[in-house]
Design a protein around this nucleic acid. Structure first.
Lengths: 189, 189
DNA sequence: GCTGCTAGCCTAGGGCTCCTAGGCTGGAGG
DNA sequence: CCTCCAGCCTAGGAGCCCTAGGCTAGCAGC
């Protein structure tokens, strides 16, 4: 473990990595201090409290996820965009389970988290551009997409699909087919 | 607080109530012991460790939820069954946020949790009876439904829908309409 | 009724976590 | 050169999880 200069940014990144390795709930101020070769009390020069650390990891994750999704969406429309978004989302969650779990922390309004969350919501809305849904159907559709992606990834992560032989990847692409159809034939009113 | 005889069942129920009131993560052995007017060390005559307590609450919640859903499904088929299931699910999560959160604990196989989880999965499958989906489409459909319900409820619970004026109930019934359509026109193969 | 077992409480205490208070120091800026 | 302060330290309190070991009341068997 190379002993780096302690900064809030480095602490946040280290916490995110630790979360992916040992689980978000096992990231503690003490463990982080140990990783930096420093006493835990010392970290309070950089952090207000544990909650701030957790929120920082959540914002980091939200930002990274939005970046990936934005990349994936670039130049795509319609089902292409839907699948790219969904895959980027799911791949991120798989690659960074701890960071993904961090997204569940209470992001009380007013924090920089709100901005990151808005960006995320805007990106989800961008998927719909190819489907030409008017409001309020668009909002309902976004909620459906977000719920399904989040739910699928969460259940998969917690092993909810392991009891059945059907491959989770296959189900996933089937689910995306169905969502695409749903968006193309969204009921009026 | 009436001081009741301490039993595992009473501890579990009290923990579930406490979870709904102060959040699942704030249910501790110490707090539970205080509620029973007893020292925390005393609870270890009844419980092996905190994890056991959490799993017990999760199993309690899973069982209660399965009961509600089973009630809701009785005598219904098709979209009726779908909506009844979904509403029972969402209503339970709203009424018992702490218990619902408990369902996210790792239910390692082998525990009585497995049985409760299977019952839950069987009930979800019962919804599909009216839609006549063959395997493996049925499994994919169950995964879609479960993901969407779970995701929607989780996001709603964590305030994810609060930023937009569109009513969460309205979106919910729209989502159910769309899922019903999807199940009726599930793509072949 | 007496004896002995056990369920279920207790105190004591160790280890980890979060966090506060206050002290020391090395290096940057005046 | 001297001052200041960022950023480390030690000390310590409080809460939580859990173990070890002791006391007691009530029940079972004689």
């Amino acid at each position: 473990m190379v002993r780096e200069k302690v900064t809030v940014e480095r602490l946040t990144r280290a916490a995110a990595e630790m979360a992916d390795e040992v689980g978000f709930d096992n990231v503690t101020v003490s463990a982080l201090a140990r990783a930096f070769g420093v006493k835990d009390a010392s970290l309070y020069s950089h952090l207000g409290n544990v909650h701030e650390l957790r929120v920082r990891v959540a914002v980091l994750a939200l930002t990274e996820l939005a970046d990936r999704v934005a990349d994936a969406l670039a130049g795509r429309a319609g089902k292409d965009a839907l699948v790219a978004f969904a895959d980027a989302y799911r791949d991120y969650a798989k690659a960074h389970p701890g960071r993904y779990t961090a997204l569940r922390v209470d992001l009380t309004p007013g924090t920089p988290a709100t901005a990151a969350a808005r960006r995320h919501s805007d990106l989800t809305r961008a998927i719909l551009r190819g489907y030409h849904l008017p409001e309020p159907a668009a909002t309902d559709a976004i909620r459906l997409l977000h719920s399904t992606f989040h739910g699928y990834v969460t259940l998969e992560q917690s092993g909810g699909f392991g009891h059945h032989p059907r491959d989770a990847d296959t189900s996933w692409s089937r689910v995306l087919d169905v969502l695409d159809t749903a968006l193309r034939h969204w009921p009026p009113d």
